[in-house]
């Protein structure tokens, strides 16, 4: 699957603003970004539901529509509401028969964790159950690529864990999975590779560990005690500066050098040194500060 210079605008908004991305078979990739970052638009381009204004999107070496016609794609779309007046078994069974080489319905329901709901009507299930039905619909065709657009957006914590268990079980069979999320932990825990998208552009691409490192390995936090933040970005090792309350948070690639410099300034008050979390990495990546972007 590949995006080459893909652009999609809605009015004056460049929802997808020049994306270049390649995905290999068997990978589980997370598309991570805030709401409105362009995740869903990118996915609609990938699935052929929308056409890019510029650039090219290919799926298995063909146009996305053709890949869909060949039964190589399954998807769980965002904002899908349950199909009224069908049972789970009827719905999943029907979708199976539209694909050339589907898996048995019972197997798909089992994988999605809804084997016992086969006879129930789709429009009379709970939110978590509905989501699993849609997961079963996405995977029933046994497609080479499965795309999940914010699959856990409306789920409670327990349902979310159960869902990811199912997803990982499916990915382990060697299928390629692309999912979008705005939850960092989900991306970190469930994907081999995280692609961070912000304002329609890809700002980072790598494993969770690589992202953590790229955003500055450590965090040095200390009380400003009224001191101005001027000059802090120039300290050795410092990648970015953020102030929360009266505490300055310096992301740094060399915390030793940063701390020594701070000590030289007499600024050591309530000092803390900690590894940067993925949260910090994400904030740094999507804040738009150019020094971070260049490093990635």
């Amino acid at each position: 699957m590949s995006f080459t210079g893909a652009v999609k605008t809605f009015g004056s908004v460049r929802a997808v603003d020049g994306i270049d991305l390649e995905m290999a078979g068997g990978e589980t990739v997370a598309l991570l970004g805030r709401n409105g970052a362009g995740k869903s638009t990118a996915i609609s381009l990938l699935l052929g539901l929308n056409e890019p204004d510029e650039g090219v999107v290919r799926l298995f070496g063909a146009a996305p529509e053709e890949a869909a016609r060949a039964g190589r794609v399954g998807a769980m779309l965002q904002d899908g509401r349950p199909v009224p007046r069908v049972t789970v078994g009827e719905l999943v069974g029907f979708v199976a028969r539209t694909y050339p080489a589907p898996m048995p319905v019972a197997e798909a329901l089992e994988l999605a964790g809804i084997a016992e709901l086969a006879g129930r009507r789709v429009d009379r299930l709970s939110g978590g159950q509905t989501q699993r039905v849609r997961f079963a619909v996405a995977l029933i065709g046994n497609p080479a690529l499965i795309v999940l657009d914010e699959p856990t957006a409306a789920l409670d914590v327990e349902a979310r864990y159960a869902f990811w268990d199912s997803m990982r079980a499916y990915a382990r069979r060697g299928h390629t999975v692309l999912f979008s999320t705005h939850y960092l932990e989900e991306a970190d825990a469930n994907a081999d590779r995280i692609v961070v998208i912000d304002r329609g552009r890809i700002v980072a691409d790598g494993s969770g560990e690589q992202l953590r490192r790229s955003a500055g390995g450590n965090l040095v936090v200390f009380d400003l005690a009224g001191r101005s933040t001027e000059g802090l970005t120039l300290l050795p090792g410092v990648v970015s500066v953020e102030v929360r309350g009266d505490r300055a948070r310096l992301r740094t690639e060399d915390s030793d050098a940063t701390v020594i410099a701070l000590a030289g300034m007499g600024a050591v008050r309530g000092l803390e040194v900690a590894p940067a979390s993925l949260d910090d990495a994400f904030l740094a990546l999507t804040s738009g500060s150019s020094n971070v972007l260049e490093r990635v």
């Binding site: 699935l47 052929g48 539901l49 869909a68 016609r69 060949a70 039964g71 794609v73 399954g74 998807a75 779309l77 904002d79 899908g80 509401r81 349950p82 199909v83 009224p84 979708v95 539209t98 694909y99 050339p100 619909v137 065709g141």
Partner: peptide
């Protein structure tokens, strides 16, 4: 109209159905 609003027609576009 109902199938458009629930997203069912959109879902069908991803299946091999033309």
């Amino acid at each position: 109209a109902e199938d458009r609003s629930t997203g069912w027609l959109r879902q069908l576009r991803i299946t091999p159905m033309t």
